[in-house]
Every structure is written in structure tokens, then in C-alpha cells.
Simulated assay, not measured.
Amino acid sequence: MKMSNDASASSFGWNFQANAAIILLIKCIKNAESIKVESKNQDIEIKQIDGSFIYAQAKSVVAPHDTANISARLKDALVSLSSVPINCSKLVYVTNIKTPFNDSERLFQNREICPYAVFSEKDKININAAIASIKEKLEKSIIEEQLKAKKDEHKSCRSNAKLDNINNFKVEDLNVYVVFPYYDADNKSPGDKGRYVEVSEAIQELLDNFKFNSDVDFRIKGRLLEHWQNYFAHNSTLKDGPISKSISKKDFLLPILYFLGNDELEDVESILETKFEPAGKREALNILSNKNFRLEYEGFEFYSKVIGEYDLFVKNCPNTSNKIKEFLNEKWSLFEMDFSTIEEDIVKEIITKKLMYNILLNRIKMNKIKKGANIS
């Protein structure tokens, strides 16, 4: 029989994990400090401001009505979640199975992390049955391994450790989040909005929390989705070792400011009532078109410095007619050291003034983000 090299189901699982991480971080954004995708402890690890952690295990099926794998996915998730460290505030089983506990009468589609307390009695019976099945399998495995040669002793130890974990697992700590619909395009029914409808709705919820207008939401929502998907997928490939792979809440939200701004120079030329030197302008535009450059420099720290100086400038010069123009011309040199890697002085001046201007234009939106996401 010819073997298949089709790994699309595995790729689908990684894709689901990255998108589930986006959703969970948005749901926990106020109390979150950072996130890791594919950490040494769990599929998704969210560190909270108080130092505790939320651990999530992501399990998916490719076909929307796949009922054959419900029990297997649940058992795998329970075994993994039972092994997490002690300093945990929440354990979450996140899946695209609309009936995650094999209960056709119970649908978790309220876009909230649901605690064990709200599970139906049938849900709880099915979960405890899954735990009992896991214990039985591990106990049989241990007996079989102990009868084999010494070369299998290491495997026996692992089975013992898993059994200890599942015996100590507190089922009351279990939470569930269902991302549905979320499935392969080949399984999509007519009228369905596609695989990413739920993560798009979560992003919309985040933007609504920041109280932006609908025009802003429409302009940036799709771009944020694409950026965060790539960002989290890449994070999952990094080894969780001595060098931290954590994505801070600030780094997660930073692209919002990037997409709210622009890399055009006509607006800052207009406010300054001048025209930049053509060669310097071309080089500045080339640098500003690099997304990574703007994500690095158009951030919360640079924002705080610029706004602090601007507030001081306005306080000391209350009668200045064109405050932004005068501030950019008089104070840009305070920030040129932030762009020390740019060699040409004229290019450095253009870029500094442009990014300062972007920040001043978006300062109200920045304050909304900081308030809505609980950033000090």
C-alpha cells in the first residue's frame, strides 16, 4: 500500500494553535503580561500581571463534524494539562470541536472561557469517564512495562509520572474554550464566512474595547489578523530555553499603532510648511517602508518620551499658534539618539520628525489602548 506524505492535518493543528493563542490572549488582555506559543509547559502559556499562569492545551479536528476523535482529543488534553506547574490560575482546553465532551446537547459557543462550574452534569460525567479511562490505560501500561527487560525502565517511569499527575489532577480547575466554526476550506458549507471568523470577531472585540471608530477598525482588522498569525506561528518555532521567547502584551499590541500610522511624508511636510530635500526624502521613505523598523521605534517607550516632552512644551509655550510645528522643529534633536543607526543627518531628521508626528496624531488612540489593556 502506498504511504501518504500528506501532513496537512498536522499543519492545520499548528495553524489552529496560533489562532487560538490570539483569541485567548485577547480574552485575558487586561490581566495578561506576556504569552508563549508552544512553551516547555504547554501549547499556550499566558503569564499574568500577578505572576500566575494560564495554561492552555489546543486540540483540533480538520472536519467540522468529526465525532470519532472527540474522546481521544479530550484525553490527550487532560494528560497534558495534568502535568503543568503548581503556579497556575487557570487550565484551559481550547478546541474547534463544538461538543468537546461528546455531549450533543451542549454547545460552547458563547465566546467566553467556560469554567467547570457551568458544565452540564453530562459533561462532567464524560470528563470523569475520560479520566478513569486514562488511569486504566496507564495502569495497564505500567504492568506491561515492568514485565519487560530493563531497557524499558525509562518508559515505565514516564508512565508512573503520568499516572501520578492524572491522580492529582483537580477536574474542578478545568476550563474550556471552543473556537467554532474553524475548519478546512474544503469542508466549508455555502454561506460560511471561513476558518478565521472567530479570531476576526475576537480582534473586533479588542478594537471595540479601545473604542475606536468603525472606519479605523475596518482599515486595520485584517492586517492585524495576518500579522498576529505570522507572529504567533513564528513564536511556536522558537525553543523555550534560557533566552525568553515571551511576547509581552506591549509587543502584541504595538502593531495596532503601526497600522494606525503611515509612512508617507506629505502630511508632516504640510504641517511643517516645508519640502524635504529629495535625496534625503527618498532614503527616509525607504527606511520607513520597513515594517520592522517602525515596529521597533514607534512603540510605547518612544511614545512616552515624545508625549512627555510635548506636554512640557505646551505648558511652557501656551501662546504658540502652531504647537505641533514648533515642537517638531525645536525638539526633534532631543530624540535623534534613538535613531543613531541612521548615518545621514538629514535622513535622521526627517524620520525623527515623521515618527514624532505619527505619535502626536495617534496619542488619543494610544491612551485608549493603554487604558483598555491595563498598561501602566
Results as ranks from 00 to 15, higher is better:
2 K>F: 00
4 S>M: 11
10 S>I: 13
10 S>K: 15
14 W>P: 00
16 F>K: 11
20 A>E: 04
22 I>S: 06
24 L>K: 00
24 L>I: 05
26 I>D: 01
27 K>E: 10
31 N>Y: 06
33 E>R: 12
34 S>C: 11
35 I>Q: 03
36 K>H: 01
38 E>V: 05
43 D>Q: 07
43 D>Y: 09
43 D>G: 08
45 E>F: 04
51 G>L: 07
57 Q>M: 11
57 Q>F: 04
57 Q>V: 08
59 K>G: 10
61 V>A: 14
69 N>C: 10
70 I>M: 11
70 I>S: 02
71 S>L: 13
73 R>M: 10
74 L>T: 11
74 L>W: 06
75 K>D: 03
78 L>T: 06
78 L>A: 09
79 V>I: 12
87 N>K: 12
88 C>P: 01
91 L>G: 01
91 L>E: 04
96 N>C: 10
96 N>K: 11
96 N>I: 07
99 T>P: 03
100 P>T: 05
102 N>F: 04
103 D>R: 06
103 D>G: 04
109 Q>F: 01
111 R>I: 05
114 C>K: 10
114 C>N: 13
119 F>S: 01
119 F>E: 00
121 E>S: 03
123 D>Y: 03
124 K>T: 06
125 I>Y: 08
128 N>P: 00
134 I>G: 07
135 K>S: 00
139 E>P: 07
145 E>V: 07
148 K>T: 01
163 L>T: 05
164 D>G: 07
168 N>P: 04
174 L>G: 06
176 V>K: 04
177 Y>A: 08
183 Y>C: 05
186 D>L: 08
189 S>M: 06
191 G>Y: 09
198 E>S: 04
198 E>Y: 03
203 I>Y: 09
205 E>S: 15
208 D>P: 08
208 D>L: 14
208 D>S: 15
209 N>Y: 10
217 D>G: 08
220 I>L: 13
223 R>L: 12
224 L>D: 09
229 Q>K: 15
232 F>L: 10
234 H>S: 09
240 D>M: 08
241 G>D: 14
244 S>T: 15
249 K>F: 05
255 P>T: 08
255 P>I: 03
259 F>T: 12
265 L>H: 05
267 D>S: 13
267 D>H: 11
272 L>M: 12
280 G>M: 02
281 K>D: 01
282 R>K: 14
291 K>W: 06
293 F>S: 02
293 F>V: 09
295 L>V: 05
298 E>L: 14
301 E>R: 14
302 F>E: 10
307 I>N: 12
307 I>H: 07
308 G>Y: 12
312 L>V: 09
322 N>Q: 11
325 K>R: 15
325 K>H: 12
327 F>A: 06
328 L>Y: 08
328 L>W: 08
330 E>L: 14
331 K>T: 08
337 M>E: 15
339 F>C: 10
341 T>L: 12
341 T>R: 14
342 I>H: 06
342 I>R: 09
343 E>V: 14
348 K>N: 11
349 E>Y: 02
351 I>F: 10
356 M>I: 10
359 I>P: 07
363 R>Q: 09
371 K>Q: 13
376 S>W: 09
